[in-house]
Design a protein around this nucleic acid. Structure first.
Lengths: 134, 134
DNA sequence: ATTTGATATGTTATATTATTACATGTAATA
DNA sequence: TATTACATGTAATAATATAACATATCAAAT
């Protein structure tokens, strides 16, 4: 399967467009509300689109917020592993781009006799803009 | 407030006992089901107990599983930050004990001009027992 | 061009997870 | 004992997510 060539359906594209235009992660029902004018009427339509977008790496779920965010890496190779910086003040979320976290976590896991496959990291704190206001 | 001296109420102790006796993380409604014989009748009673136990660091929530687990550190100083190894095969969850992850994440955050406060790390893979079976 | 198979859609209903609201209880303490 | 701060009990409801089933679409293989 060629991820880059993946062609999105209408519903998937509609959801992705909304997420890409959002400054903050969105919840599923917020997405539903926002795109009802585009003919999407039920939660399931949203969840199905999200599932697919997550599967192909275009969207990530922020587990601790039950929210979804468009991937900001041009060619995200992290369909599975994700790392976020989440501002507790303004709710802005930044995805940590390609880095060596996976390698590091793999080593940490090894020490516990655990075979690393993937990870989800959610770091909370204050973003640049907000920490300067404190 | 002295966390060590914190005295638990009946409901809190009942929930904690159950979690400490469980090999796997439990969901809130599974907890409710298991302790109805002890007089806890409503979800809210469970969630309130969990909230308190999380607040004092005796219990952690595993966000990606909507599940709760007793802290296995004798004196957990991580009421906030948590790190787990989650086996995708048997669902066993191990909490990474006191380590230097916070320091590492603080540095990683700094590079993005972000002030680290706390984190949640969920590593997925295969535990010792399960990876040997593959 | 048609059949086939895989995937996506639409719709209704329902399951699962979590909170609001409000009245009452308990226990330490000023 | 009046006050304060938590904790409880109960009912209702909100928020998040999935099941079930009938159709539809569309590309690949024949």
């Amino acid at each position: 399967m060629n991820l880059l060539a993946e062609k999105l359906t209408n519903n998937q594209q509609t959801v992705l467009d909304l997420l890409e235009g959002s400054k903050e992660p969105l919840k599923a029902y917020a997405i539903l509300f926002d795109i009802q004018k585009k003919g999407i009427k039920s939660p399931l339509q949203v969840y199905r689109a999200l599932d697919k977008l997550i599967e192909i790496g275009k969207v990530h779920k922020i587990e601790s917020k039950n929210s979804y965010i468009a991937c900001n890496n041009s060619n995200c190779n992290s369909q599975t592993s994700t790392s976020f910086l989440i501002c507790e003040i303004c709710d802005k979320v930044t995805e940590l781009k390609k880095n060596n976290l996976s390698g590091y976590f793999s080593k940490v896991s090894d020490k516990s006799n655990f075979k690393y496959t993937k990870h989800n990291l959610e770091i909370y704190g204050a973003c640049k803009a907000c920490k300067n206001k404190i």
